[in-house]
């Protein structure tokens, strides 16, 4: 982070991380089928890094488990995220990161829907439209500098 640049929101509210999912006996049992559930999807995306802060989207409350829905049988996932401030210029980038992470981590059969929590961002519709447009997402990922920023959000933090 460079010296002079001022962040849009330098002192955001921090939320607590949820505890790791507890291992159950049925998960260790070879014969039981574990369906993909909301918590599993949430675990996939909660540790995505914020583009500005060294914090995860969960810690900034951009993602909450109640806003993550999955239907394993019908192969649909829907995620709503909440930008920290209504004019956040990073909203599209955050949405794109969530979408890419899910595309990489879920089987092909799933239809993935990522959108902004209604009423939390000034240009909600425009961002939602961008994120829903398959071709624009694909085109964005062709852009190598954009892909690099997305990868940065998705990389596990190395200390």
């Amino acid at each position: 982070m460079s010296g002079g640049v001022q962040l849009e929101n330098a002192n955001p509210v921090i939320f607590q991380r949820s505890v790791e999912r507890l291992l159950t006996a049925s998960e260790e049992d070879e014969d039981v089928h574990d369906p993909i559930d909301d918590r599993e999807i949430f675990d996939l995306i909660r540790s995505i890094n914020d583009p500005e802060h060294p914090l995860s989207l969960e810690e900034l409350n951009v993602l909450e488990q109640v806003r993550v829905k999955v239907n394993d049988a019908e192969s649909t996932v829907s995620v709503e995220f909440t930008p920290t401030i209504p004019h956040c210029s990073m909203a599209t980038l955050i949405g794109l990161s969530i979408k890419v992470k899910l595309l990489r981590s879920l089987p092909d059969r799933f239809k993935i829907d990522v959108r902004i929590t209604p009423g939390t961002h000034a240009s909600e519709d425009a961002v939602n439209k961008q994120l829903a447009d398959k071709e624009r997402v694909a085109a964005a990922l062709e852009n190598s500098s954009l892909l690099e920023v997305v990868n940065q959000c998705l990389s596990t933090r190395r200390i």
Binding site: D34, R104, N151
Partner: peptide
């Protein structure tokens, strides 16, 4: 891609992590 749809959650978790890292391969970050 196949173990991403494994019947066991523990396998899926490992597959997600491994696949994520392999996706990042070659990107500067």
């Amino acid at each position: 891609a196949q173990p991403l749809d494994d019947r066991k959650r523990l396998v899926r978790r490992e597959a997600v992590q491994a696949r994520g890292e392999w996706f990042l391969l070659g990107s500067p970050v």
